[in-house]
């Protein structure tokens, strides 16, 4: 039996206008409910790939579909409601004057009625443990709170797949743990771009390694992290003293 995958990337290649080729035929299939870590060194093409998932960048070759819907110009609105991208810097993500208005931004763009928007704002903020923060200004929140609100801003669109770019960067250990608890509690398909290998192991049973614009490994996170030669070949390093087989 084959279900429709949440995300299907087939042979995607992309070169920037300046001629720099970032992706050379990427294939990736993520089924509903899967949690996948996208690993790779800086410059591997991770962010480029992420920007393809909701049609910000268009592949030069190959195709992408989200829950069966191809990423194409006429579907962009629907695609952007299905793919929720949380960018690395919450100050980029939170641009409205209050948390509530920011979480409402996506649902309002989808043209939902105001009562539904309000319900979604409340639900999304509760999911990230920020209920009651709707009237606060983003710059009054701690960095960890802002990161969680950034997650809420896309949860309110009820995405098919949640894409996180470096979710643990710049968080203090408590903030990092709180975010992990939130992410673990969310009933969504998850693609997490990260350098934080223990975080990937904690949250994602499966990992994909991208390097040089192509997928070079795809498998169980624990097995991949135990493969020292693979990690070394792609500039991935575990923190000192960390043993993935014992974590």
């Amino acid at each position: 039996m084959s279900t429709t995958p949440s995300l299907l990337v087939e042979d995607v290649a992309f070169a920037y206008p300046d001629g720099h080729q970032a992706l050379f035929g990427v294939d990736l299939r993520i089924d509903p409910g899967e949690r996948v870590a996208l690993l790779g060194p800086n410059g591997a093409g991770k962010t480029t790939l992420v920007l393809h998932l909701n049609g910000i960048l268009r592949p030069g070759r190959g195709s992408i579909s989200v829950a069966g819907l191809p990423v194409a110009k006429q579907n962009l609105r629907e695609i952007r409601s299905r793919v929720g991208i949380v960018f690395q810097d919450p100050d980029d993500q939170l641009f409205m004057p209050t948390v509530g208005e920011d979480v409402a931004f996506g649902p309002r763009n989808l043209g939902l009625p105001e009562a539904e928007v309000a319900a979604r704002v409340e639900e999304a903020l509760a999911q990230v443990g920020m209920a009651g923060a709707a009237d606060r200004a983003p710059h009054h929140l701690s960095f960890g709170q802002r990161r969680r609100v950034a997650v809420a801003t896309v949860l309110s669109m009820h995405p098919e797949i949640l894409v996180l770019d470096e979710p643990s960067s710049n968080l203090d250990p408590a903030g990092r743990r709180e975010l992990a608890e939130v992410l673990e509690s969310l009933p969504v398909t998850l693609l997490m771009v990260t350098h934080d290998l223990p975080y990937a192991l904690q949250l994602c049973p499966r990992a994909v390694v991208l390097d040089g614009g192509a997928v070079v490994a795809d498998g169980g996170t624990r097995e991949l992290l135990a493969d020292a030669p693979l990690l070394a070949a792609h500039r991935l390093e575990l923190p000192y003293g960390f043993d993935p087989s014992r974590a």
Partner: peptide, 23 residues
């Protein structure tokens, strides 16, 4: 550059030229 990133984040959430207002 931040402006460009904010714009990306806005597009990713369905921005189409006008900010949706509340009631």
């Amino acid at each position: 550059e931040r402006g460009e990133r904010v714009h990306l984040a806005m597009l990713s959430r369905g921005y189409s030229g006008r900010l949706p207002g509340g009631p």
